[in-house]
Write a protein that binds this DNA or RNA. Sequence first.
DNA 1: CGTGCGATGTATCGGTCCGATACATCGCGG
DNA 2: CCGCGATGTATCGGACCGATACATCGCACG
Lengths: 211, 211
Amino acid sequence: MLEFAILGLLQESPMHGYELRKELTAKLGAIRAAISYGSLYPTLRRLQAAGWITEAAETPATAEEVPALTSRRGRVVYKITAEGKERFAQLIAQAGPETYDDTGFGVHFAFFARTDQATRLRILEGRRRKIEERREGLRDVLGRAAERLDAYTLELQRHGLDACEREVRWLEELIANERSGRAPTVPHGTAGGRREDNSPPPPGETRKERP
Amino acid sequence: MLEFAILGLLQESPMHGYELRKELTAKLGAIRAAISYGSLYPTLRRLQAAGWITEAAETPATAEEVPALTSRRGRVVYKITAEGKERFAQLIAQAGPETYDDTGFGVHFAFFARTDQATRLRILEGRRRKIEERREGLRDVLGRAAERLDAYTLELQRHGLDACEREVRWLEELIANERSGRAPTVPHGTAGGRREDNSPPPPGETRKERP
DNA sequence: CGTGCGATGTATCGGTCCGATACATCGCGG
DNA sequence: CCGCGATGTATCGGACCGATACATCGCACG
């Protein structure tokens, strides 16, 4: 998951670890707490070893300079390689079961702007299926096993069930939207859909809407 | 977290691993997917080594019998020890930061029937605080950084924000309910609050309703 | 002027938990 | 009688977290 997210972010621009974490936190804030350095740095090493990212060595001020004072480690900027882009595309295409769990789905969704429509639809539907299953499980427990459980546990299940139903509805809207070929914005009542998205030209896909 | 849940469940009755997993799944179904054996069995060993649970050896049919045919491993039933109960009480009392994250809160909530009212209140309020912080973070991103993010990412944040607001409201209700000393049931429309819970005498608290 | 502190920045270590895998037993239907 | 799905215990490698350590930079406050 982290691998996927890093590869996705580095496609927008080269970054160093600290920055990467901040961007990750901003982009995935709805999904999970801040990523830990204890996973970030080892993963960066792994990706570099695999050849999917490379160090881009912070502009050393016209060479000559920098007399290695105190060894001056400085920030390590990473950028994605061609192989890395390939890897990312491959990770998008093949959807394992982990693509539909809470974190996996969230991360994939966050990079939908770099995902082609067919895949978006597939992921959205897979997620819906998974949530529907969880919902049925909760309904079962609330129906059949209700007597065995205490009031607090039951309340927890009810709240969970509520969240499931809500998410299914959300997914339905997104799927319908996606099928009709329109932009992602869902009619939300408040917080009217800002559109525009002046981000860097989404490479290849997403540019269905030709001006 | 797993340690806490196991100790909590084994207080209701002795169980073997497989059974434990099923009960865990039923009780925590709203929170997380089924627990993995890859964590369950090692944790059981750890708890046993610490002296918090012991093997209760499935009734060996009046001894003598069982000629070790094919070594007959059979099911291993665990039960909680006095030290284990102490440990559980201690884990309830001390609330670290992990008590308020999604999983930690869920697990603690699931055992609220074994938690005294003051602690319930403290946990509920801690959780509310945490969710409010997450909510503010999302509002910030949706306000300030909205232009930098693509439409899908924004939609994800909106959905997350929605979930936060909903959970805060849920917590408010629970807290109000708790303060007024009443039972946990939240006015939900459907599924009126069943009470009873004939499990072993909840130690000290929760037994407001004496027959 | 210095000094200390919070933000920036890289890195490791131990521990928890997951997913895959393996393997044995039991009861039941074909 | 055979297979197959449920029951049941167990291990291994890997992902990720939380705590911790340490170094640099800028600036506010004395």
